[in-house]
């Protein structure tokens, strides 16, 4: 009896391997479904989108295009989508993270108010510059404006607005 049991165990070993693979694949398929449900379409979150990828055409809002990058992290041409608003800074909790020692942890923010985008400086050490002028109080942005944070210069581009000739 015991001998038979041990003999069967030899094959139970193989059987459990097969069951494990089956369970593993099942969980992984579930994981793929979850990913699809969680990210149905790329929404207007602030995530760097490589240039060649097509954007959803009707994304409301604007974007920040990197014009000059002081660091190696981002390259000119990279852009960040601005949904309802983004925070800019060196800290990892920001929507737009800048690896630049001249940027403060929480440097500046852009938010949507009454259909217009506002730029606000969060008391950063080295200041936020709008078209080379230091921002002292929240200021309305218009398409084509250049925003300087640290050594990086972004250009603000608003959807549905006339894009400046320098873009």
């Amino acid at each position: 009896m015991v001998t038979v049991l041990f003999f069967l165990l030899r094959y139970v070993f193989l059987l459990v391997l097969c069951i494990f693979i089956f369970r593993l694949v099942k969980w992984m398929v579930g994981d793929l479904r979850e990913v699809r449900e969680r990210h149905p379409v790329a929404t207007g979150s602030a995530r760097p989108v490589p240039e060649e990828r097509e954007l959803p055409a009707k994304t409301a809002g604007g974007r920040l295009v990197v014009m000059e990058s002081g660091s190696s992290e981002s390259e000119p041409g990279d852009f960040y989508l601005i949904g309802a608003g983004v925070s800019i800074g060196r800290g990892d909790s920001n929507d737009v993270v800048i690896a630049d020692s001249f940027a403060s942890a929480k440097h500046a923010g852009i938010y949507l108010k009454d259909g217009q985008y506002w730029l606000e400086d969060f008391n950063s050490v080295n200041g936020t510059f709008l078209n080379q002028v230091r921002v002292e109080q929240p200021t309305v942005l218009s398409s084509g404006d250049k925003i300087g944070v640290g050594r990086i210069i972004f250009q603000f581009v608003r959807w549905g607005h006339e894009v400046g000739s320098n873009y």
Partner: peptide, 19 residues
């Protein structure tokens, strides 16, 4: 949950070797 199956796998293998 998957590690649980890995544990059963180990137990089955080692017990099969035991005798």
């Amino acid at each position: 949950k998957l590690l649980f199956w890995a544990g059963i796998y180990a137990a089955a293998g080692m017990l099969a070797l035991y005798p």
